[in-house]
């Protein structure tokens, strides 16, 4: 598992105040929203702010790809890596 995935799980627990969930409980492949972790739209915004702050990546809220990037921890990590590679 990449260091970024490990770190992202900690960022999520911290930013979303998931007090009953440990970082290692988050399955990197599982959906963050809906049936998976059960996060909601405020969480989506909170994740956006947290990763923009920490990784200095820009998120286009109107892009169709954003939904895909936010699907799981693994997708988020892939998105951050590619955004960093581009900048």
């Amino acid at each position: 598992m990449s260091d970024l995935v490990t770190e992202l799980r900690e960022v999520l627990v911290d930013a979303l105040e998931l007090e009953d969930i440990a970082p290692e409980d988050i399955d990197p492949k599982a959906p963050l929203f809906g049936d998976g972790l059960g996060l909601d739209s405020i969480d989506a915004l909170e994740i956006g702010v947290a990763i923009q702050r920490k990784y200095k990546v820009k998120i286009d809220a109107t892009s169709e790809d954003t939904r895909e990037h936010f699907y799981s921890v693994e997708n988020l990590a892939r998105f951050i890596e590619s955004a960093r590679a581009e900048s």
């Binding site: 405020i42 956006g48 702010v49 702050r53």
Partner: peptide, 8 residues
């Protein structure tokens, strides 16, 4: 600090 605001 010129950071994004927490929606929560």
């Amino acid at each position: 600090r010129d950071e994004g605001l927490s929606p929560r």
